[in-house]
Design a protein around this nucleic acid. Structure first.
Lengths: 261, 261
DNA sequence: CCGTTTGGTTCCATTATTTGAAACTTAGTC
DNA sequence: GACTAAGTTTCAAATAATGGAACCAAACGG
């Protein structure tokens, strides 16, 4: 349900179609797409054709189904390496994981949603793409709230408009008002908690990753379960986590600079 | 240098710009992009604006640089999971890696280039995105030749047109004629070798992954070094590799089917 | 300090592309 | 062999992209 925002121009529509295919999670037939888009047949057809021709989609000629194309994987490789904090943060995440022994999440904001870009699992070794690349709600996760708390007014407003405020657990902050109050508390405190707001039994302590100019780059969290530890215990890691966040931010900023010439 | 093919329509241009940003590997300023594209200022500007607005690019307001956006990472997650053979092939790669004890590559064809979508390293555990997503030449790698050997005439022709035939080593097949002869030999033999054609000391034995209808889905290779083993020894794995390739193909085909209703 | 260059953004009449209803072509049913 | 569903193509009208040029701002130089 719920169409995309007013897609600007042709490329907006094309990308919209891409998303539509992505959402399905498996190869889709033309008619399936036609059913849920409100683009007219011919328009959708040409859009798909263009995307296919461009390698963003792949048409399985046997089955007549469309799937996301490999060009996307290649682009993503670059996106991962360059846009996200992941490559910079990697060694720091390792350090934080080693010192805390807990699960670590690195997230960035994507259109009002939390996008996990890297993760260290206490138990298992890294399971990169299986885990990274996932999205989650912003209003009820530690990393989400940490980022919202330091977002610019405009960004916050946009993000708020996109929240669905579904009540996942008894603790979920399910109205904008409750959330705004919480964000205020987070700013004062300097870090955000997730008090089983998204999943029962899952708690975390998260800090934002901020540039010197105060812009939000992402967020970092130490996550655990109520079975294993308490919020108070997690809060003990807040100092270290903030420190690590600062170092990531510093490196991210210096990395963006050096384009000699 | 070498412009993209005739980009069809606006989305083609937009994607072209995306690629341009990706190629840089680090955030780029407007003027850098302007310098190497032959789009007029205003056009490029609007293209960048649209892409940014769509979340495909990210504008760093401090520095005024563009980087690939997080939306791309999210899309890639889906692409990885759905379009590529990687998720299906994963357990099979594990099996092949365990049995051979060598490095395993899973690749697909992307516009005449080889795109590595997964890898098992003899030594280290998987390092997903860091390795996967890389591209390489088709004419001088085992997986590339395996895919070309079973490509349709049209696909082969297109791919050939995009090869640069740079002489990487003494063994590199550096003309279309040599390559075509080799492809013929590969078809007869049933598998492709890389005889140090790309990197000195690196050899491999690769097989195509084919649907029942004979369409190329990708290729699978067992790679090693001349220091460790010989081509003849690698060829001993050809049977097993072919078997695994067949199983991957079978699962890929049945996976694409089940859209009930 | 003020003239100049460099880098980025906006205007707007022209042009080219996209649009989508409808017609058409397969391929599959009954 | 008529009927239906799914995909593809057409074409005039509508719309969106184009790009030369003007504009703005900040950094530079004398």
């Amino acid at each position: 349900m719920g169409a995309e925002g007013h897609a600007d121009g042709t490329v907006g529509k094309a990308l919209d179609v891409l998303d539509m295919v992505a959402r399905h999670g498996r190869p889709v037939r033309f008619s399936d797409l036609l059913a849920q888009s409100d683009y007219p047949k011919a328009t959708l057809y040409r859009l798909l054709q263009t995307l296919t021709h461009q390698g963003m989609l792949m048409l399985d000629p046997d089955q007549g189904t469309y799937a996301l194309g490999v060009r996307l994987v290649r682009l993503a490789h670059a996106a991962w390496a360059q846009s996200s904090l992941a490559p910079i943060a990697r060694p720091y995440l390792d350090e934080l994981a080693a010192k805390t022994g807990e699960t670590i999440h690195l997230a960035q904001m994507d259109l009002g949603q939390v996008l996990y870009v890297d993760k260290r699992n206490a138990a298992r070794p890294v399971e990169m793409f299986a885990q990274a690349g996932k999205v989650g709600p912003a209003y009820c996760t530690g990393v989400g709230k940490a980022m919202l708390a330091w977002a610019t007014p405009e960004a916050l407003e946009q993000a708020l408009a996109r929240q669905s405020f579904h009540r996942h657990t008894d603790h979920t902050l399910d109205t904008p008002e409750k959330l705004l109050a919480e964000l205020q508390a987070i700013r004062v405190r300097g870090h955000a908690f997730d008090r089983e707001e998204h999943e029962r039994g899952i708690i975390c302590c998260a800090v934002p990753i901020l540039t010197r100019s105060g812009r939000v780059l992402g967020a970092l969290s130490v996550t655990s379960t109520t079975a294993r530890t308490t919020l108070a215990a997690l809060e003990d890691w807040a100092g270290l986590t903030k420190d690590i966040a600062a170092r990531i931010a510093a490196e991210a900023e210096s990395w963006r600079f050096p384009e000699q010439n």
